[in-house]
Design a protein around this nucleic acid. Structure first.
Lengths: 123, 123
DNA sequence: ATCTTGTGTTCGAATATTCCAATATTCTTA
DNA sequence: TAAGAATATTGGAATATTCGAACACAAGAT
């Protein structure tokens, strides 16, 4: 998942996922779905966003593989396909992270730079 | 951090972070910086992307608070401000996540729907 | 079959993003 | 201080995203 055939990370697929999360309304939808599966109208009323717009955002989330839906009576039930992923991403973003300082980076930078200059291929 | 004054999650700030990660080149830059702090030219050569474009993407990452930079001799040293955050996000995205099935969601949906219909305020 | 409610789609305008070419700017070194 | 290397900025074209309005479609109730 999110790796290409050769087992390496895939910037295109991954950026597609982040792009799907790159909108406040979509984040609010995902947060809501983290609590409960919801129908379009419920989301519409909870978020104070027009219904067609909610549908559009849900469509983006669905194309990104973040949500799925199934009809439930007269409602469309939207839910997270991978709640664990979404939960983890939110928690990561909410957490406090230690800040890296320039002083701590300096030596690693110089070393990496030297290595790169030695390795310098043709030029 | 990434919470507003009232301590709640902040969709606008959070989506800004995801937006910064919503581009394959920026993801590649972040992955590179996860290994080592780098100067612009090094990134430029490693990624085969034109230098002004690299600068532009770095600027986006900097505005999002994901990277910082400091001059080191004649080079600009770019590094991750919160390596832990970036690492965690990549790991989350690369991991295998259990898929939620419609059957598992159905009952929760119905219950949530009933609650919502009862709570129905004015209308 | 019609009406109502819930949902999805389409079109177009406004805005934002992305990238390149060209040009600036900033250091370092001669 | 002039040259050169490293990096940043700007302007503009191409493309993508966003959102509302209007409309289309689907299912259940009457």
């Amino acid at each position: 998942m999110l790796k290409n055939a050769s087992g390496h990370s895939n910037p295109d697929e991954e950026s597609a996922l982040f792009k799907a999360m790159a909108h406040p309304v979509r984040l609010m939808i995902l947060r809501e779905l983290l609590k409960n599966p919801r129908c379009v109208t419920a989301i519409h009323e909870i978020l104070d966003v027009r219904q067609p717009n909610i549908s559009q955002h849900l469509s983006v989330l669905k194309n990104a593989g973040l949500v799925a839906s199934g009809r439930e009576g007269s409602y469309m039930c939207y839910y997270l396909r991978k709640p664990g992923l979404v939960k983890t991403l939110f928690e990561a973003v909410e957490a406090e992270w230690p800040e890296e300082k320039m002083e701590n980076v300096r030596n690693r930078f110089r070393k990496a730079l030297e290595e790169r200059l030695e390795a310098e291929p043709i030029r």
